[in-house]
Design a protein around this nucleic acid. Structure first.
Length: 579
RNA sequence: CGGGGUGUAGCGCAACCUGGUAGCGCACUUGAUUUGGGAUCAAGUUGUUGGAGGUUCAAAUCCUCUCACCCCGACCA
């Protein structure tokens, strides 16, 4: 590729709307342009990287017996109705009508479509197990896209679906897939991606893991341990806290006017938040009232709570709280009617707490959950905190970090095969329902994450496996002597070796060429200049390390060939190709 | 959906408060000189100031409505 043929401006200044490194550099470097909120056009450099990421994913999926297929972007509403998700999923699913008034959707995930296919094609136990995958455009009408390609509405995703005749086989394959994922992240140049326990969200199913790149621009919070390798999304993370067991004392009322919050109460009574019980009222989608009781120093994890009721929860309003016999601001679980009470173990395991009295302007001392609210259901609903004790090793302290989800794997179970009536005939001639797993990787998000993890102040440095080009040729003073001939010849020879070369044939001042080269992040740069040509040499420089040196022009092709081979070998060695 | 912010040339910004011919830097075009870290000189080009209404002799500027984008939150695979 000659630079003069590459369409796209390179900006010197940071575009106003960009706030994170990957976004800034990809706009400045002419990798992409925004078309609408969360919708981008990828230009040649980005498209080349994407193609390489996709190819690596494809190789790894094929290596574990994946079959690449292509499902449609536009999906008829009937399929979503069959699985029940047409009504479960909100506005995120983009719905529209065709000319006949037939309801259509833009695919945001493809469980329905893959089951639609698989249920007519795999009728015998002999057809199992199998895995189908695609690399395809998804559309999700995000409430809030942000951060360039980190979070968008239209994106390319590799989604894979496996089908099994037993839970054991699903679990076996789940591990195979997990290994493939580790190899993918290593091969595309972000081996530091970690696997964390997670919630399966709208996909359904029980076991789910997310692959996270830990970095500041991430929007997920990850619970990590200072001592062991515990890793969990904060949505499901658990922290062990100190309990304060005491002998139960009788309830005493205390006058606490104008104390609406835990902070007000602790300030007034001069006690620690951990000596209080907090009452938070929620309402389920069906309108049922829920009281969550938790110790005052902890926060309710609403995802954990919503799983108990299999419903989204919203805060109850004051009237609804009063209807249950509680006083907002002074509420507790004592004497409530028509209200399900969920208590976190933190409240049960500490005694003589300060709690609401359900009487205006009064709290009580010596609240004891087991004695005072015996009907409360004990479930962990606490948000893990920085500094809590690790639930796995009991030694380390939890540390919360930010992360970007770059992939996820789920053991789906029979959520879709049951609702969509997919069956096969087993050995004993009975009809059975297959068990599914599903596995996603966001291609564009990975691209952005690599940029987040691999950049300096001047630009991105792309790992050799996915770099838009492997080698860049710069010529200083192209018009000088025979430099142009030398460069053209070198370009041709390298290209003939099968190397991917971008040749800056624009005759720009050195500074500008170098600045733009840094933005493009090609791993190896060759510089041809009058100064070095006098000695018959060219200079090479490695983008990542800054390492540089000189080589005779005659040896250049060999040198580059070897260098690229070595770099590729280094990455491949880090993730041996044997399964 | 709630809170905040911004829309002026391809990009970054000024002019807006206090109404009076829309400007600067970069980019772009032509020519010359340059070539080891975002050149130099000269001459140019580029705008319905996001849109619609209103007030006014006069609106980028004031008022109303609207649209788009960004940030924070809610929500989310």
């Amino acid at each position: 590729m000659k630079y003069s043929k590459l369409t796209g401006q390179r900006y010197k200044e940071k575009p106003a709307e960009a706030t994170c490194a990957s976004h800034i550099f990809m706009l400045r470097g002419g990798y992409m342009r925004q078309v609408a909120n969360g919708i981008y056009t990828l230009m040649l450099p980005a498209q080349r990287i994407v193609a390489k990421i996709e190819q690596i994913i494809r190789e790894e999926m094929n290596a574990i017996d994946g079959q690449e297929i292509k499902m449609p972007v536009v999906i008829p509403r009937e399929l979503w109705e069959e699985s029940g998700r047409y009504n479960e999923i909100g506005v995120e699913l983009l719905r529209m009508n065709d000319r006949y008034g037939h309801g259509l959707t833009l695919g945001m995930t493809h469980e329905e479509v893959v089951v639609h296919l698989a249920r007519t094609e795999a009728k015998s136990y002999k057809d199992y197990p199998f895995m189908l995958y695609q690399i395809q455009t998804k559309f999700r009408d995000e409430a809030r896209s942000r951060g360039g390609l980190i979070r968008v509405r239209e994106f390319t995703m590799k989604d894979a679906y496996s089908f099994h005749t037993s839970q054991e086989d699903l679990e076996r394959y789940y591990k195979v897939m997990a290994r493939a994922y580790e190899r993918i992240f290593a091969r595309i140049g972000i081996p530091e991606v970690v696997r964390v326990q997670s919630d399966s969200g709208m996909m359904g199913g029980k076991v789910a893991d997310e692959y996270m790149l830990l970095c500041e621009v991430g929007e997920d919070t990850i619970v990590t341990c200072s001592n062991c390798n515990y890793l969990a999304n904060r949505e499901v993370g658990i922290g062990i806290i100190e309990d304060y067991p005491e002998t139960e004392k009788p309830i005493e009322k205390v006058y606490t006017p104008n104390t609406k919050s835990i902070e007000d109460v602790t300030n007034l009574l001069k006690i620690a938040p951990s000596r209080t019980a907090k009452s938070v009222f929620y309402k389920t989608a069906q309108g049922a009232l829920v009281l969550a009781l938790i110790r005052g120093d902890l926060e309710v994890n609403e995802l954990k709570l919503s799983k108990i009721f299999k419903s989204e929860l919203v805060f109850a309003n004051d009237d609804e709280i009063r209807a249950a016999g509680a006083i907002p601001g002074f509420a507790s679980g004592i004497g409530l009617k028509n209200c399900t009470i969920i208590a976190d173990p933190s409240v049960a395991n500490s005694n003589n707490l300060v709690a609401g009295s359900n009487e205006q302007d009064y709290h009580i001392y010596n609240f004891n959950l087991r004695r005072d609210v015996p009907n409360a259901k004990l479930v962990d609903i606490a948000m893990a905190r920085n500094g809590d004790t690790c639930p796995i090793c009991s030694q380390g302290k939890l540390v919360l970090k930010r992360g970007v989800e770059v992939g996820q794997i789920f053991q789906l179970g029979t959520r879709y095969t049951t609702s969509m009536k997919m069956t096969y005939t087993d050995l004993d001639n009975t009809e059975k329902t297959p068990i599914m797993g599903c596995y996603g990787i966001g291609v564009g998000r990975n691209l952005a994450c690599i940029a987040e993890a691999r950049h300096d102040a001047k630009g991105i440095f792309w790992p050799i496996t996915i770099a838009p080009w492997q080698v860049q040729i710069n010529v200083l003073n192209l018009d000088n002597g025979n430099l142009k001939e030398v460069a053209e010849k070198l370009y041709l020879e390298l290209t003939q070796q099968g190397l991917e070369v971008i040749y800056d044939d624009r005759n720009l001042p050195a500074g500008q060429q170098f600045a733009e080269a840094d933005l493009l992040g090609v791993p190896l740069r060759l510089v041809i200049s009058p100064r070095n040509m006098e000695k018959g040499q060219i200079e090479w420089k490695v983008r990542t390390t800054g390492e540089s040196g000189f080589i005779d022009l005659t040896a250049a092709v060999n040198f580059v060939n070897e260098w690229v081979k070595n770099e590729l070998a280094k990455i491949n060695a880090s993730c041996s190709l044997q399964q």
